[in-house]
Design a protein around this nucleic acid. Sequence first.
DNA 1: CAGTGGTCTAGACCACATG
DNA 2: ATGTGGTCTAGACCACTGG
Lengths: 264, 264
Amino acid sequence: MADLLAGDLIKAENPALAALAAKAYAPRSVRPIWLQIYDRLADAIRQDVVPPGSRLPGEVYLADLFGVNRITMRRALALHQNEGLLQARKGVGIFVRPRPRRFLIRNDMQFAESLLVDGGSISSKNLWLGRGKASPEAAQLFGIAPDEQVILLHRLRQLDGAPIYVSRKEFPILRFPDFENRYHESGSVRAVFRSAGIESYRRSETRVMGGFASKEEAEILEISPQTPVQYVTSINRDVSGQVIEFNRGCWPMASVELVFAAAD
Amino acid sequence: MADLLAGDLIKAENPALAALAAKAYAPRSVRPIWLQIYDRLADAIRQDVVPPGSRLPGEVYLADLFGVNRITMRRALALHQNEGLLQARKGVGIFVRPRPRRFLIRNDMQFAESLLVDGGSISSKNLWLGRGKASPEAAQLFGIAPDEQVILLHRLRQLDGAPIYVSRKEFPILRFPDFENRYHESGSVRAVFRSAGIESYRRSETRVMGGFASKEEAEILEISPQTPVQYVTSINRDVSGQVIEFNRGCWPMASVELVFAAAD
DNA sequence: CAGTGGTCTAGACCACATG
DNA sequence: ATGTGGTCTAGACCACTGG
């Protein structure tokens, strides 16, 4: 009784979703039911039938609404989670993720990367600053032993409060012996460079590769583990060619677009 | 009876796989069984217990081997298909994909992209050459109307016979009125450029973005639909700045690494 | 505590490819 | 005809979150 009541209430709250579910399915042989549900959910989300940030009705209710078993319903939901449109939180519900925006990272080689996005405010948050073992790649670039220490800076970039990019930067201690203090004073890497006498530097190489979010990355970025992501590693050098920064970042794949433009 | 016999035969064929499956599972609360099976399969593949190109035992047999239900087994297999290590062919079996290699695409801006891979032979295959409607983006770049025609060249790149990259190139007809004939004569885009008086050109912009393989792309690349891929679009200009080529390519995400190096 | 998503099983039927 | 992978159901139990 209480179940029926709750069901009716939710249904009344979102008639558009109910209408979407009421349509007849194409034959299973043409396209599996779960993919058809996946399609309809995608439409519902993109057409703001269910707005970003809102919570979807529960799986059992949705399954009933779409006239399928809960398992079948879950397949459709799971694919959307994997692709980044939805995000489940155990014990809480399934939420519509903020509309995936395409970030543009201009990578002009001469300048540091710059984030461009239409509207929305990007904020940067430092997760951790300290010293630790260099990654093998950074050690080689800095010309130090593999187990030597480097300055480590973990940063998180957020769009309107939602995490969107996590990076791990490495700097050679020899070059920036007082990195931490300088950084705390200024709050900017560029300023630390300047205080070390580096007025200008350049991006010498950028690598892009695909992967799947580790548990840690998934937690920080608030996505499901195994979600496809893009890793970007970049190398900055001073004018003499010395490597002064090695950076490795991670994006949810769906929300970034990289642009590499010629210098002109 | 026949079942048992077949099972024993296969098991005898691959004792290493059986050994992998025989180990006790960690508690489900630590890591779900299907993810533990996923892990073991990954090990088996990466350690050549099941070599690239070989076919896995059937799902029902594997499920029995790992002591779980077929559905549970399928979850582990499905994730590997999604990530590119395995590839299922309906009615045939599940196959181990060729070891994902990291392709390096050097993108020096001055030169056309060049494929680098350690060992293995890369071949190029033309799927289609003809004329058709320009994409909106290309039309704008070429300075033509959105419904105007362009030269279209669909190409497939293969590594040791396995499809690895599919691209769709667009060229302005005004600039290359005799493209098809020139191309058939020489078999190279560069030669067509030269015959049109273009001795040198440059890559002015490259964009990288993630996505999920459409049904068509999946078929060409022999991957499952919805598998994560990377799209790369690039623009080539002649020395005067005129756009002479617009290219859009698609890679299985797991098998490519893009390198953008500064000109130096 | 109730409701949520996450996992797992048992069994069924289908579509496809191969011999 | 057989075996393969693909889909779908029914029902169960668990772990987590919130009030």
